[in-house]
Design a protein around this nucleic acid. Structure first.
Lengths: 351, 351
DNA sequence: CTGTTAGCGCTTTCAC
DNA sequence: GTGAAAGCGCTAACAG
């Protein structure tokens, strides 16, 4: 159908509803009614309107609609780092769900800078009906302030006790506990923990779990590290120096960095040292040995954030918190420490 | 500053410019002039306006501004798959650049479905001043049609001969050629190529390069594969069965899948078989052996796409094409084939 | 069932 | 240098 003029030449000014009305020989109101279905229109004019819409390639101007309706049909997503597959997956989860509901997704990357989060969220919120804030690094106080300024703020991986901010969060305590249990069962007694960013709520949650899990039969040695694979690579030597028989990394990403370092050093995993991650990113099953970790459905996290966003009425009530419990997946990177003949369980729970 | 009411309770209806005007004892026009700087305003009223703005937490309604100005200050990015780190990086590049210019970024994920691209782009374009289309899988004809319907369409990794669509694209031919040269120099004479998606322009470009590189001293055996690591994992056996001494994968992601399969099979890389990727994603230097590949700055690709978007006037002229030449990085996954004592170059060009 | 009218929040002439 | 008024494109009241 040679309707649209192809390629070359000047672009026609975008058709307005008035153009369509004129073209169809009806009033703008009728066009609107056909398009929104807000009120019944008889068959014959409806046909003419639809034909005119198609002929002119008309699509309503969302700015005008938004101005009138007072909503944007958009949701903003603020993430610390799009390069991090974890956040990319969460974003994908939100986007897919939003697309399904005819919502647009706006995205902002704060470059891991806690100071940028507030402004990014505030700015995006002008253009959106609400914000999904991923793993905010900002202070509790700032977050509370922000929640007051933004209509419908939903957090991912950040629960705030005092407030009514809806959130979906991984149960980091449970995840860390299951890793600790696994290592203890294998016979490990001394574990080095590669710490995440101090400002991250998820790191503080992990610390709570470690305090609970640590004891006379499981000593935890803390190693400052970070959240990237480069951090893991750098911290690996210090972890090794502690004499621990197992290393628990803040995340899979960090663990992969440590694994690469061990490879360089000729330290074999899991024979000489066991290694665990957190999150189960795609690559963790592509490395050798495959990484024992705790699995989190990241897209699902995004989907649930979207649902909270929807549930949270525009009036700002409802403040439910969804907790997602991660599952341990035992793969090749953990084994009994050298010398311990605990029955190495070959039952890999993977898949 | 107890300005913002914190947390609890009902949200105040967002302040309008009229509220500010009343609060400051001036007319809305003056408020507008202060905020946009479109015309000079004397000092004293300006102070009162700024104070009122701060007190009320006023921020202009972008829908109203957009309606009046006819622009959205937003750019749409359409990608096949946000889970793919390649596209996540490109998106990050665009977003960062856009943020810098006070533009919002809208994102859509087409789930690798060629049929969804057109609709996603069209829909996003209603809300944006233009679209960055990443690695479109749609037909040339569809793309041309789309370019006519969307103001300012910029493609990433897709050049179209006949049209004036601005694009930034990796020089896949040069990348493939450099890999072929590298393998031939090592002494390989028979190479299996793991094919990408047939619809991808980048795959067709690779095929052109392979036709040029193949010959009596370098036989290329084509293996149908795909673009994911799972595809690479599945196709690895067939590639092995060809008797080739080296495998060239469509991308790093695919190569990592193949590498995992070789690990399962106990086939050692590069001793028994050499393996190459394409793109140099972050994980390729975390696996063992580290992957020989061709490096592409993916965020830079996004940045350049943004620049093209800016350059392309709203009138739709200018149709320049930027070509990015990738560089070979030789790492541990390639070596001379067994039996050939070509001087194994230990000079790793990495970093 | 359909057309006319008013107005969403803002910017920008046009007068003063 | 400032205010009044018109209008961006659309939808929701109102008439008819």
């Amino acid at each position: 159908m040679g309707t649209a003029q192809t390629g070359t030449g000047a672009r026609p000014p975008r058709a307005t509803i008035i153009d369509v009305a004129r073209e169809a020989g009806v009033s703008p109101a009728t066009v609107s009614r056909v398009l929104t279905g807000s009120k019944p229109v008889s068959a014959e004019p409806e046909q003419r309107v639809r034909a005119a819409v198609a002929r002119l390639g008309y699509r309503p101007n969302p700015a005008a609609q938004g101005l009138l309706r007072g909503t944007t049909s958009a949701v903003g997503v603020v993430v610390p780092d799009l390069s991090n597959p974890y956040f990319a997956e969460v974003l994908k989860g939100v986007t897919n769900a939003a697309q399904h509901a005819d919502f647009r997704t706006l995205v902002a990357d704060t470059g891991e800078k806690a100071g940028a989060e507030r402004d990014a969220a505030l700015e995006l919120s002008r253009w959106a009906d609400g914000i999904v804030l991923c793993s905010p690094r900002m202070s509790q106080w700032e977050l509370t302030e922000l929640a007051a300024a933004v209509p419908r703020l939903v957090c991912v991986n950040r629960r705030s006790r005092g407030t009514r901010i809806p959130a979906v969060a991984v149960d980091f305590e449970a995840g860390v506990a299951s890793i600790c249990r696994h290592l203890r069962e294998l016979g490990h007694r001394r574990v080095a923990y590669l710490r995440g960013p101090a400002r991250a709520w998820s790191e503080r949650a992990r610390q709570r779990a470690l305090r609970a899990a640590g004891g006379p039969d499981l000593e935890i040695v803390q190693i400052p590290c970070g959240s990237s694979s480069v951090d893991g690579h750098s911290a690996a030597d210090a972890a090794l120096a502690t004499g621990a028989t197992a290393i628990m990394a803040f995340s899979d990403y960090v663990a992969l960095g440590a694994l690469a370092r061990f490879d360089e050093l000729g330290v074999s995993v899991p024979e000489e040292i066991s290694l665990t991650g957190f999150d189960d990113i795609a690559l963790s099953r592509l490395v050798s040995p495959r990484l024992t970790t705790v699995t989190v459905n990241k897209q699902d996290l995004g989907l649930r954030a979207w649902q909270l966003f929807v549930d949270t009425g525009a009036d700002g009530i409802a403040g439910s918190v969804v907790e997602v419990t991660p599952e341990l997946v035992v793969r090749g990177s953990t084994a009994a420490p050298a010398g311990v003949t605990s029955p190495r369980r070959e039952t890999v729970h993977d898949r």
